[in-house]
Amino acid sequence: MRVSGLKAYRWQRWSAWALAVYFPTAVAYLAIQPVDSYERFVQMLSAPWFLIPTLLVLALLLVHMWVGVRDVLMDYLPALGYGRWLYAALSVWAVVLGLVAADLLYLLASLLSIARL
């Protein structure tokens, strides 16, 4: 199998651009429209113009986190003499991110059902 870091590098860069744009936009919006009640919070989160970009950015954030922590583990575990633990550490990190993705999907389903009520 041919292993290359180029694909991971590209995903890291594209996700970084999306996060670089999304974070200041979200902060500016929250500064203008502060969330002061649960109803307002659900209304804001479930609005399509907020929800769809946020879901896309969350997916890219998971990719960004995967590549970033993967690189740290690959760079430092073997150098510190824990190379044999690398695959175990990467597997744990993959499981954590999988659980986060599942939790986000569950939150999405809950949010949409709350917003319908």
Partner: peptide, 29 residues
């Protein structure tokens, strides 16, 4: 940049726990 990235990962994961409580428990808002 790397160290702050790792701190941000911990911050965002703990933020997800708060988001869970926020969305699923209106009484705890």
């Amino acid at each position: 940049h790397r160290i702050c990235g790792l701190i941000s990962v911990i911050f965002l994961l703990s933020g997800l726990v708060i988001l869970n409580v926020w969305i699923l428990s209106p009484l705890h808002f």
